[in-house]
Design a protein around this nucleic acid. Structure first.
Lengths: 114, 114
DNA sequence: CGTAATAGCAACCCAATGGTTGCATCTTTC
DNA sequence: GAAAGATGCAACCATTGGGTTGCTATTACG
């Protein structure tokens, strides 16, 4: 029953950082943009936004630390591309927790109908 | 190309709030606990944590505003129970974005092999 | 070569957040 | 009815976070 082992806590922190990376409207927009198109430079990503280039840069750094995007310098511009793997991890987590919930409901229902 | 309509922005803010709710290790632990067991009181949830009851209370309020848990007063205690629906929404969002990414890759591959 | 474009760095600001402590309120139970 | 249990509320604190401005460095291009 949620014996919080140290490793478990570390994993949880990792997952939390992942979710937190998507916990901002601007970053969410960046991710959708990058997932829907080819790699884009910071200037390009800033063009469609209402905030400063610096703000976008900070957000991209957060996304990069979470592994959701990767940066590659190309000439005078930094191209950011999407990486789907962390989102797969998130989905796996959501699935695990939902499954827990479902089995719990099933057990309770069985108890009632017994 | 990410024509950010006002409604789209509103939806994005909603989603961001959802993800942000899971963007904290303590809240993540609370959600897993509640999804794995029956409704629990604040005192019970605090018992297995290293932070104060007040901190847990605040976290539960955040989770409630995101719709991830619901509270019901029972006598002198407040019982919180898990609600799986918002997590389904998150999964749907992740699926949509991943699908976008996959179709993009497919299109690019087709272009190369053309 | 000079100029414009792209980006990085640093300092700063303000609001939100996670956390605490202290006290009041309402149930339960003896 | 009084004491113990479980919460709620409010104030407060330190840190983080989103955002900006100003300045510098590198790259592309006429």
């Amino acid at each position: 029953m949620s014996r919080s082992t140290p490793e478990g806590a570390a994993r949880r922190r990792q997952h939390a950082e992942l979710f937190a990376a998507l916990g901002d409207a601007t970053r969410l927009a960046l991710v959708t943009t990058l997932a829907a198109g080819e790699p884009r430079s910071i200037a390009q990503l800033t063009a469609h936004s209402r905030v400063t280039r610096q703000a976008i840069t900070k957000h991209l750094r957060v996304l990069e630390r979470a592994g959701l995007v990767h940066c590659q310098r190309a000439g005078r511009e930094s191209r950011y591309r999407f990486d789907p793997q962390p989102m797969d991890e998130m989905r796996a987590w959501l699935d695990r927790v939902s499954a827990q919930w479902d089995t719990l409901l099933a057990r309770l229902k069985a108890l009632v109908e017994e």
